[in-house]
Design a protein around this nucleic acid. Sequence first.
RNA 1: GGGCUCGUGGCGCAGACAGGUAGCGCAGCAGGCUUUUAACCUGAUGGCCGCGGGUUCAAAUCCCGCCGAGCCCGCCA
Length: 559
Amino acid sequence: MTHEPPDDEYSIHWIRDVVDKVAERNVEEYRISSGKSVSGSIHLGFMRELVICDVIMRELRERGLKSCTLFIVDDFDPLRSLPGSSSLSLDEWAGIPYSDVPDEFGCCQSYGEHHANELIETFPEFGVDPEVIWHHKLYETPEMKQAVRTCLLNTDTIREILIEYVARDFNDEQQKEYIESIRSWYPATVVCPDCGRLQSGAKGEIVPNRVTNYDAEKDMVSFNCPACGHANTLPLDSIRVKLSWRVDWPAKWHVLDVTCEPAGKDHAVKGGSYDSGLEISRRVFGWEGPVKVPFEWVRIGGRDMSSSEGIVFIPKRWSAIAPPELYRFIMLKTDLNRAINIMPEKVPDMTDEFERLERTYYGIDAESAIDDELARLLYPLCLSGAVPEEFTPNIPFKFAIVMSQLESVIGSDMVMSRSEYAIQRQYSLESVSAESRRNIRRRLDRALKWVQEFGSNRDRVDVPDLVPSSIIETLTELDIRFLQGFLEKLRAEEMDDETLQSAVFGIARELGLKEKRAFVVLYRILISRKSGPRLAPFINMLGRDWVIRRITDALELVG
RNA sequence: GGGCUCGUGGCGCAGACAGGUAGCGCAGCAGGCUUUUAACCUGAUGGCCGCGGGUUCAAAUCCCGCCGAGCCCGCCA
């Protein structure tokens, strides 16, 4: 039996499914949120969450719905550890909110702001534009104060929920212990007015400065700071209070009226903080809470990215070596529950793949392995800005790898004009647009950085100023005659890649020189190696005049 | 101990929710008008679909068990 594939039962892409679900909320404005603790540099993986938020927003707008994105900088969290590179003292700053810790680099208001800004600066390139909300400032608003009050008033309910969600997989003894430990627990901590700490101790031995009592009638909060010993009972309005983990999140959802928030797998697991947060939304704040969109993590080169341990690979570093649109493409094409392992050394190949999508979108490739409808959906979502009316050609990344390394040899003007010429030939263009020229420039810059950081030895091209005498000495009588013949040919006429490649073979054969040897000789003269980039295009990149001079110089050295 | 996700040619992945001859990219291999070189084009090769069992005329796909990898599950975030 055969199946007619039902058209609308299963969607072509996860974005459609997610947006369908979000749109069901039927609200006036769809608010898509994300948040990040600023314990250090925010790595490239977090950008996945921002991109997910962004495409949900874009698709909602596409459907004529009002939508925005939010990015909450969790800078009111207490500092627990410092990266090894930091000059700050952990003893001095542990337990203090990131917004109160100074910026050791001196350029921002605080430790938290510094790391947040490092990320925020890359937003335009990556095509995201969320409203930035500073957690510590949010806590100063009357709405958030009221939410804190609501949580304190509903402490019993919150305790019940936590026992239900956190302790459900415990054995009897663990359960008893947990219930006991939470008996006099309040869902909030206090910034000590004396020492400025939310908690004492660093990672592993933390004791929070927890609210020890809340007098609802007088709206008074008691605490007993474990860091400095200061104990007091003060009006809620007069002190800085922060809600606990698992409670803070639903309070923010409520105050900011969040419709949807994606969550990494650590938070999104069944019974995890997201689920308990939804339960708190229902039973404490009286609404259903946001639409949960779980997603897997991003790894780089097979290793986890983590601010505290592992490798630091920040978005800025990505945009220095690869197009941000490519990052968005990788995020969008991969299913949400798949971990993404980014391999920087594959950037050239991945860029090619992305450009296949681009050409499919513009209908330039006659046949394409990429589905038309998928290209129509995905390509615009990959771009950081509006989709240009017409295809804007660029040089292939792999061409740029070689070309960009020649700047120091032939100068950047030559590199640009030869790159433009390559595009003109490839797409049969009369002229190259200003936009294309900007693209070329960007690509050359990225290709050069890429090859320096991630290129293999084969990718690296190093043209020495002079041909070393050690190489001159290896030239035989026949080699020299070949070089003379090739020089003549070069002087005689401008040749395209194919003609030039043939000329090498032709001249070598005429003289009875082994073809392979001819190539070795030329590569040695040019780059002191016995092989290199495909020869004729490489010579044309360097330019006829330059190569003529090079060979002439070499022949002079022979004497 | 409990839970979630993943396991498909050398590498990275699609196909699994609707069971019916196993696809793509990269690498490798062979070719591109008597011209091997690493922008480009063409072609062929390469897979007990983690293992075992079950359902079915038919299983990569559905069900059960096992193995392996990753992650989450006290406080704190």
